[in-house]
Every structure is written in structure tokens, then in C-alpha cells.
Design a protein around this nucleic acid. Sequence first.
DNA 1: AACGTTACTGGAAACGTTTCCAGAACTTGC
DNA 2: GCAAGTTCTGGAAACGTTTCCAGTAACGTT
Lengths: 340, 340
Amino acid sequence: MTSIKDIALHCGVAISTVSRVLNNHPDVSQDTRDRVLQAAEALNYIPNTSARNLVRSSSDTIALLVKGVSNPFFSKLIKIIDREITLRGYTLELHQMDTSEDELRIGAQLANERKLIGILFLGGRFNYSPEEMALIHVPSVFCTYTNSFGTLDASAYSSVAIDDKQAACDAVDTLVSLGHRKIAILTANENDKSISELRFQGYKDALEKHGIAFDPNLVANTGTFSDMRAIYEATSRLIRRDSSFTAIFAIADLMAIVAIKALSDHGRSVPQDSSVVSIDGLDLSEYTLPTLTTLVQPTEEMGLACAKSIIDLIKHPGKHRQFTFETVLRPGGSVRKING
Amino acid sequence: MTSIKDIALHCGVAISTVSRVLNNHPDVSQDTRDRVLQAAEALNYIPNTSARNLVRSSSDTIALLVKGVSNPFFSKLIKIIDREITLRGYTLELHQMDTSEDELRIGAQLANERKLIGILFLGGRFNYSPEEMALIHVPSVFCTYTNSFGTLDASAYSSVAIDDKQAACDAVDTLVSLGHRKIAILTANENDKSISELRFQGYKDALEKHGIAFDPNLVANTGTFSDMRAIYEATSRLIRRDSSFTAIFAIADLMAIVAIKALSDHGRSVPQDSSVVSIDGLDLSEYTLPTLTTLVQPTEEMGLACAKSIIDLIKHPGKHRQFTFETVLRPGGSVRKING
DNA sequence: AACGTTACTGGAAACGTTTCCAGAACTTGC
DNA sequence: GCAAGTTCTGGAAACGTTTCCAGTAACGTT
């Protein structure tokens, strides 16, 4: 393994000079610059990241802390984020967390240990306090996060998300406009201070807007976005408990897919007997039977925004921005008009 | 940021002693050990990875080089691998590659630059030459790889995979035993020296075994495992070209799901008009309509084996092993018996 | 001719660890 | 009571960079 020292020796210059050349510092003559670069090439020099990191006390790696990697929407997002981050010359470290773990605490620790230059949080809760935020001394962007509980000042955090409440509202609107009044909801958790709670809020707001009474019997909590067995069970329980609904709003595509299967197993076909609307717009949902009517999240744009945000934030610490994306309804075969 | 030096000062011992305590070296008295650990705790000490990496000239990170992250089978595998790797105290770096890139070359470069201690290759080709393998100076495990083209000696590589040929064969067997003789295949690429070629081979072998003539008209190449649009188009072309088949063998669950949709759009329902069998056993395929008949890969075990293999290999360089897992048929609603 | 600039270069400290070597303080065995 | 271990500890070098400071040489200016 050849080092900067070897190059210096080979060229008869000082170590510092080689370092200057390699880091494109201006104050070195064209002649020595050429010689050094040539030697570096010839000796097949590869910089030692650890040494550089040590003296700079920073690295080139950004961590992605994810709760619930199995969520297929996240999978795609992760893919895009990783692509962009690497493209821009940084490295991405993937860290999964259990739902029970405290993402901020873990993030803070990782940042110190591994000299991270940035953190992307994906899938956490939505009620960070200023005190908690203060734990993190590293540029951080919260993906699919909205400061919906108003715990933070806009100048204190960066985020990329859709308007979850609005999307849920739109989903319910769609159903109502097709004549549905008895609309069940399939959510992960009614009050987890996170995406599911927010979409649940949107559902309730929409009902109220249309003068429909909220019925707790029509709420099914799955406890998860990705465990299909649990989603299936929750749907089945809902059907057994109160099968009077004519439509289901599922807060994620995957839930909708599983719900359709559960309905089918209980002798109710979609969309004849129940309509289903969801949020996500996975590629997959255009190829299911029936195809899903879903509010599409602009995944590509969101992933790009995540990568761009964190890198901007690293370059300009403290310059926080929030990005909110619009969802778009993609009509599918999972709904039908009824005579309300 | 408190360092080892601060602890030493605080306790009135030497730096080296602190290091020994922190690394669990035996030759230090219980008394000093306690004092040091206590101080470390009190001063909120966090080790500096860069410094350690520098002096050890190695890191604690294992890279996962993936071709085609969007493949949902891979998503799950990645999740499990990441979980196990972190659990065992290492860090996982995710690197995606285009299909066009040379994974070994990229791996070799990354290993040097980033002082990787190991590489997991996922989704590459199956015909590495000994010369190519020599590029990689770091313990490496090839996931979902079989040395099917016999280019390597068993003592020269580590791998974790299923027997792709056998699985494909089993899939076709299943269809034949239900009376099917005109069996189409949906594959990514007939000759990519990779998973798809191997499964294609298994398909051909099975046909031959049952005395069924191979018909090139019944072969549909999608060119991809995950681009659903492309899979849909390939299936549609197949149907238009020769719709005489009574069954389709799709080499991956996702392909089967899209194929079923394409068939449906062409007025052929599954399993009434065509049976479909595939390989993967995604959780999802138990919740589609119809559910898939598929050969299940033991994803959990495979992911575990990947993590275990690479760590074993790091600890005992050169000790190569190959793991081959059995697939199990999971019957679903996508097939039916016909009178052949 | 003396002086101040400018352009370039070398030396050396520092980053936070690990690890080798040597030495001090005890034990043990005879 | 002395040599030979044993057990624990400290000092210092090394890992490969970056960066600060000082210094030299060449060049214009006055």
C-alpha cells in the first residue's frame, strides 16, 4: 500500500507538498504538481480514508436510519437516496432500528462514533422536542416527516414529506364522491405520533367535513406497515366486527392489497362489494387484480430531495428547509360508484 | 469530545492502560479496570473509529454490493443481512451498481479506499474467472450465486444460494404433474450467465425429462427482474405471439404477479385459462389474487448464512464454504389440473 | 542596492488509537 | 534470602493524513 510519503520520497518533495497537490491547493508550481500526480498514478496511490478522517475528525459517510425497512415504499426511497448520495461522492451507511428504539439517541451516538457528516431519518415519530433535537450535533434531514405536532420551529429542522393529512383527506373524498358513507379505515396505529396517526386524523377530518359520524367500530389497527399476516388479521377482525362498510381507506398500498385478499376470503369482492383506496402509489399496485386506486407519492422526487437536502445542509449548516410534495390520485379498479 | 487521554488523566493512569481496559485485555488489575470503566462512563467516552481504523489499518465495515436492489426478494434479504451484521458489531455499507458495471472491479477499489474488511456480492454474474477473483484481496461472499459454470475451484470462493436449476426444474415438474405440456417461460435473460440463465436451463432440462419439445416461441425475455412495465410488455408479446400455452413458469414471483395481470388484461384468467408457477416465495404472494404457487426460498436462513459466512471468513481467511439451500413448494391458487 | 512582495516549499505538530518493550512491584520456590 | 517468575503498568513509536508556521528564492519597486 503506497502512501503519500512514498510519493514524496519518489519525487524528492515534502509530504506536505504532496498533500497540497492531492487536495488541489493552489499554491504549488505546475511542475511539481505534474510530477506528483504522475507519481501518484504510477505508484497506484489510494488515499487512506481513516487517516484523513482522523485528522479532519469527520468522514464522508451519511447514515440512513430507518424504522421499518420492509415497507416497500421505503425500499424504493432508499434505493433512490442511495443512488443520489453515492453519485455525489458520499457514502451511505444503512442502519435499521426497531420500532421501540429511540432514533434520535441512536443517531446521536452513531454520529459521534463513526464521525458521520449527516443523518437521514426515515420512518420515525413526529413529535420531537427541541431538547431531543439538541442531542444531534450533525446535519440531519427527516424524511417522510412533518412537524405536525408543532413541537419544532421551522428554522430548527429539515424535512421531506407529503402532506399526510391532506392525502388521507383526498382518499376519503374520493370515496365519498363515489357515494360511499360507511368508510372503514385500515391504519397502523391510531396514535403513534407518526404517519399513521396523521393519516388517521385526515380520515376523521374528511368524515367531519362531509357530515359523516365517526364510528370507532370501523377503525382497524394493524400495528405495522409491512407485516402482512398482522394486516390480514386486522382486516378480518374488522369484517367480523362490523361488515356494514362499503369502502375501506387503507393508509398504505400494501395494506390495501392484503385487505383485498382478506375481503375476498370473506366472500366480498373488490370493487363489487367494497371499494378500496390507499396512499403510496407503488409500481406494484398498477399490476394487482384489481389495480389500486391510490394517492401517488412522488417517490423519485422525494428521494432526490432527501439527498439534496442533506448535502446542502452539510455544506451550509443551519440552513434548514422543509419540502412538502403533492400526492396525485391514480385511479384504479379497486373502487366503484354506489348509489348512496 | 472526550478521548482515551482524558480518561487516563482523570484516573491517573497511562493511556495504554486505558486502551487495554477498553479492549478487554486480560493483563490489568480489577481495581484499575473498574476505575477506568467508571471514568469512561462518567466522561461519556465514545471511541474514535477513525483513529482505531488508522492504526489497525482496517475498519469494521462490510460492504454490500448489489445489482438490482428493487428486486423485492433482495429487499428482504438485505434487511436480514443488515440486521445480522449490525447485531454482530459490524457496520454495513450499501452500494448499488448498474447491471453494466463490473462488480469485482468496483469491489476491489472500494475495499482499498475504504479499508473494508469484507464484501458481500448480491446479484452479479456467475462466471468469474480465477484471474478476476484475484482482484479482490478482501474476504468476500457471493450471495445468491452458484458456481454453475465451473470457472472456480470450491476452495476459492464462498457462496450462499439455492439450487436455481433444481428449483426451476421443480416448478416445471409441478406444472407437468398437473397435466400441462405447453409451458411458457418468463425469464429475465436467456443467457446472462446469471440466475435467469440458470433457471432457464432448469426449465429446458425439465421439459426434456418429460419428453416435451422445447419451443423458442414460448420463451419471453423481460430483461429485468423488477421493471414491471418491461415484464408486462414481455408477457403481452408472448401472448400475442403464441397463446397456445396452458401454463407459465415465471422465474420470480414479481414476474408471476405481473404476468397474471397481463393475462387478465388479455382476457385469460388464472388459473382457469392458464396456470402460473414461480420461484421466490415472497410474503406478498400469499396475499395476491390468486395466491401464487411458488418455490419458496428460505430468505431468513439465507440472509443469516450470508452474514455468518462473511464474518467467519473474516475471522478465518481462506476458509471457503458454499451453502446451498432447498426450496419448498408452497401451493397457491395460481394453478389448476387440466386433462392433458 | 536595499526592501517588500509574491510564489513556492519543507518541517513539524496534531488527530486518537493500538501495541511493543521495558520496568516496577510482588510472589513463589528453593 | 535470593533468583526466577508473574502481574501489572508506563512510555513511546507508529498508523497516514492535514495544516500551520517559517523560510527561501526570485522578482519588482523605489
